[in-house]
Amino acid sequence: MLRRIAGHGSLSTTQRYLRPRIREITAAEAALSAHFSALRAPRSLPGPVAVTR
């Protein structure tokens, strides 16, 4: 059923997506951690702006 919904010609193609490799899981975990770390990082305020007349 999933093979047909995804439009794959063979079941082996669908099975690739059903069994992620440990390397892919680890990479996804690292990317997600980096994303959340960037969101939690303190942001610096902009420096003073010179006003000229």
Rank of each mutant, 00 (worst) to 15 (best):
M1Y: 05
M1D: 03
R3V: 05
R3A: 12
R3Q: 12
R4D: 14
I5S: 10
I5W: 09
I5P: 00
I5Y: 08
A6Y: 08
A6R: 11
A6W: 02
G7M: 07
G7Q: 03
H8K: 06
H8T: 02
H8C: 04
G9I: 03
G9V: 04
G9P: 03
G9S: 13
G9H: 07
G9N: 10
L11F: 07
T13D: 02
T13V: 09
T13A: 06
T13M: 08
T14Q: 01
T14K: 00
T14R: 00
Q15D: 10
Q15M: 15
R16P: 00
R16E: 03
Y17F: 14
L18F: 08
L18H: 06
L18I: 05
R19L: 05
R19E: 06
R19S: 06
R19F: 10
P20E: 08
P20F: 06
R21W: 02
I22T: 09
I22R: 12
I22H: 07
I22Y: 07
E24H: 08
E24M: 11
I25S: 08
I25Y: 04
I25L: 14
T26G: 11
T26F: 10
A28Y: 06
E29H: 08
E29V: 15
E29R: 11
A30P: 01
A31T: 11
A31M: 11
A31H: 10
L32E: 15
L32R: 13
S33N: 13
A34F: 06
A34R: 11
H35F: 15
H35W: 14
F36V: 11
F36L: 13
F36W: 05
F36M: 08
S37W: 04
S37L: 12
S37C: 13
L39H: 04
L39S: 08
A41V: 03
A41W: 01
P42R: 12
P42K: 15
P42M: 12
R43I: 14
S44P: 03
S44R: 15
P46G: 01
G47W: 00
G47N: 03
G47A: 04
P48K: 03
V49M: 11
V49W: 05
A50R: 02
A50Q: 02
V51C: 06
V51H: 03
T52L: 12
R53Y: 09
R53M: 10
